[in-house]
């Protein structure tokens, strides 16, 4: 496990690190962090518990147990990663293991939002591009990759691959506004105006 020296903070314009590839479509959040580990009142212990059952049941070495992947901070996945439960414990577990960004063919929606709200960019790539990226990762196991959110590219040495990111997410990450609380609170006057228009808060209050 990568010791997380610091968690995401402030504007996130790029993430540089080693990649770890986890194959498989539809990997759900129960697999990322089994429900029994949700019995906690803080997220601190989750890093060691990530993919616990998959790691136990797999016939060969699970990528998260492979020494080659030690200190990796960029997770590469296939399609519909993070489907199922809304548990933020899933991205929290990945983050506490050391993951700082995820590249995939597609993500489940709640998982994507949960990652964004803790400063973990989820970027997408086409299947051929991701295959080419994985080839590079497998060939040069210690190579550092740069997810450049500003220029929407993944860069490694002389190679680069285009990435896709929702424009709202890109703005939130690069401006540091991914931690939405303070921005939302600043809208209090407008919140009050909206509340005055909503029938169930005014004309038929319960």
């Amino acid at each position: 496990m990568t010791q997380a020296s610091f968690f995401p903070f402030g504007p996130i314009k790029s993430v540089i690190g080693k990649c770890i590839y986890l194959p498989g479509n539809d990997i759900d959040t129960d697999r990322i962090i089994p429900a029994r580990f949700l019995k906690c009142v803080n997220f601190e212990a989750l890093g060691n518990q990530v993919f616990m059952d998959d790691r136990k049941e797999i016939d060969n070495l699970h990528p998260f147990d492979n020494d080659n992947n030690k200190n990796a901070s960029i997770l590469i996945v296939d399609k519909n990663f993070g489907c199922g439960s809304s548990r933020e414990h899933a991205p929290q577990a990945l983050m506490r293991w050391g993951i700082r960004a995820i590249i995939g063919q597609s993500f489940a929606e709640i998982f994507y939002g949960n990652c964004l709200s803790i400063g973990i960019p989820c970027v997408t790539m086409s299947e051929p591009n991701i295959k080419s990226l994985i080839y590079k990762v497998n060939t040069f196991k210690q190579l550092l990759f740069n997810i450049d959110i500003q220029s929407k590219k993944i860069i490694a040495e002389e190679d680069s691959w285009p990435l896709k990111i929702e424009k709202e997410s890109r703005k939130m990450l690069t401006s540091g506004a991914w931690d939405a609380t303070s921005i939302l609170i600043n809208g209090k006057e407008k919140i009050n105006i909206t509340m005055k228009k909503i029938p169930y808060l005014n004309s038929f209050i319960i």
Partner: peptide, 29 residues
Amino acid sequence: DLHRVRELPSGSTQLFIGLHLIHEVTSPQ
């Protein structure tokens, strides 16, 4: 439309939530 508070600089929408339900697993943190 009724619950839209404003557009945020990122381009997403600030949306008012009329009812918030919580339980023991996802609320302590």
